[in-house]
C-alpha cells in the first residue's frame, strides 16, 4: 500500500489540475549516466517514446508516483460529481437535467478508467477508495467550493472541465500506456462537458439582466479557483523535473495555466462577461495575457482540508459508499450462490 499522506509536500511540486503536488520521492534529478543499468535502460525507453506497460520493469519511484497521480486524478473525478449533483433536481429544464446527469455519469466513468489504470500498478481500487474515505488521499482543490446557483453548472463545465482538458490532452502522450489510453477516452468525452458548460453560460448571457448577473457571479467565484487548479509555479521543483523526465508531466503548471487564460479570456468577452482580475491585460509583445497574483494561501488552505466544502464532500462520499455496501455485498452473495449451484449441477 503506497503512502498517500505526503501530498502536501514540497511547494510547487508535481502534476497539476486533478492531481496537485504529487511527490516523486526524488531528491535531485540524476543524469542518464548516473543511473543504475536497469534504470538507464528504462529511461532510454521513455526518451525514445516507447510506452511502459504494466508488466515491464519500472523504478519503484515511477510506480509510486503514478499510483499517487492516477489515484488522485480518479478521486477528483468521483468527488467532482458531488458539486454538480447539487443541481440535478433543480435544473431549469428536463433536457438540461438529462444533460447534467449524462455529464455526471461520464465523471463516474472517468473515475473508473483511472482506477483501472492505477490497478495495473499493483494496488486495488478498494484500497485506493479506503485511502480517500480515510482522508489520506487528496483530490483536486476545485471540488471543495460550493455550487450556489445554476450558473455554477455552466462555469464548472466551461472553466473547470476546460482546464482539465488543457491538462489531460498532453497526458494522452504520457509514458505509461494504461494511463495514456485512459486519458484518450477521457479527453474524447470531456469536450462535451466544456461545451455544455459554455452553452449554459451563453443561454444565461442572452437572458434577462438577472440571468446575466448570475453568470457574472459564477465567473467571479470560479475564475481564481480554476487558475489555482494548475498548482503553484513548479519552475524549481525537483518533483516536477523528475515527473517531466519520466514523461508523466509534459508541461509546467505555469505553461498550462497561461494556455487556459489565453483561450478563456476571448470566450468570456464573447459572452459579454468580465474576468474578475483588474491586472488582466493583453501583451502584444509576448502574444499572451498577463494576469494578477494568485492567492496561494487559499490554495494551500483548501488542499489541507480547510476549503468551504472539504468536510461535506468527504462525508457525502463516505456515506454513499457505506449506504451501498449492503447492495454490493448482496450482489456478491448472489454471484457466489449461483456459482455454487452451477458447480453442483456440473
Amino acid at each position: 500500500m503506497p503512502c498517500f499522506d505526503d501530498v502536501v509536500g514540497e511547494p510547487g511540486g508535481g502534476v497539476s489540475v486533478y492531481a496537485q503536488l504529487v511527490d516523486t520521492g526524488a531528491q535531485r534529478l540524476r543524469a542518464l549516466e548516473d543511473l543504475p543499468p536497469q534504470e538507464r535502460e528504462f529511461q532510454q525507453r521513455i526518451d525514445a517514446g516507447t510506452k511502459i506497460e504494466p508488466k515491464d520493469w519500472m523504478p519503484e519511484g515511477y510506480r509510486k508516483t503514478l499510483v499517487r497521480q492516477i489515484s488522485q486524478h480518479a478521486h477528483s473525478e468521483i468527488v467532482g460529481q458531488l458539486p454538480e449533483a447539487n443541481w440535478v433536481t433543480r435544473a431549469p429544464t428536463l433536457q438540461r437535467k438529462a444533460i447534467l446527469l449524462a455529464k455526471i455519469q461520464d465523471e463516474a466513468g472517468h473515475g473508473l478508467y483511472l482506477y483501472s489504470a492505477a490497478e495495473t500498478l499493483g494496488v486495488s481500487r478498494d484500497e485506493l477508495l479506503a485511502a480517500l474515505h480515510a482522508g489520506k488521499a487528496k483530490y483536486s482543490s476545485i471540488f471543495n467550493y460550493p455550487t450556489l446557483s445554476w450558473a455554477d453548472m455552466g462555469a464548472i463545465g466551461w472553466l473547470v472541465d476546460g482546464s482539465a482538458i488543457i491538462n489531460q490532452i498532453p497526458l494522452c502522450r504520457c509514458s505509461y500506456g494504461p494511463y495514456a489510453r485512459a486519458m484518450v477516452r477521457v479527453c474524447k468525452e470531456e469536450s462535451f462537458h466544456a461545451r455544455q458548460g459554455y452553452d449554459i453560460m451563453m443561454a444565461l448571457c442572452k437572458g434577462s439582466a438577472e440571468q446575466r448577473q448570475m453568470a457574472q457571479d459564477a465567473l467571479n467565484r470560479w475564475w481564481w479557483p480554476s487558475l489555482m487548479m494548475f498548482g503553484p509555479s513548479d519552475r524549481d521543483s525537483v518533483n516536477s523535473a523528475q515527473s517531466a523526465q519520466w514523461r508523466i508531466k509534459l508541461f509546467s503548471n505555469d505553461e498550462l495555466r497561461q494556455r487556459m487564460v489565453d483561450q478563456t479570456v476571448p470566450q468570456a468577452e464573447r459572452l459579454g462577461l468580465t474576468i474578475p482580475d483588474p491586472a488582466l491585460r493583453w501583451n502584444e509583445d509576448t502574444g499572451h495575457y498577463e494576469f494578477g497574483e494568485i492567492d496561494w494561501t487559499e490554495f494551500h488552505d483548501v488542499l489541507k482540508g480547510n476549503g468551504p466544502c472539504n468536510r461535506e464532500r468527504l462525508r457525502t462520499r463516505v456515506q454513499a459508499y457505506e449506504d451501498g455496501a449492503w447492495f454490493r455485498d448482496g450482489l456478491l452473495a448472489h454471484a457466489e450462490k449461483q456459482a455454487a449451484r452451477r458447480s453442483l449441477a456440473a
Binding site: L112, Y113, E119, A182, R185, L332, Q338
Partner: peptide
C-alpha cells in the same frame, strides 16, 4: 479496458454503462 463486477452478467451490464455510452 476493465471493470469490477460480482459476476459475468453484471460485468456485461456495467460494461454497457461504462464503455458504450456513445
Amino acid at each position: 479496458g476493465s471493470l469490477h463486477a460480482p459476476d459475468a452478467g453484471m460485468a456485461v451490464n456495467n460494461a454497457r454503462d461504462v464503455y458504450t455510452r456513445r
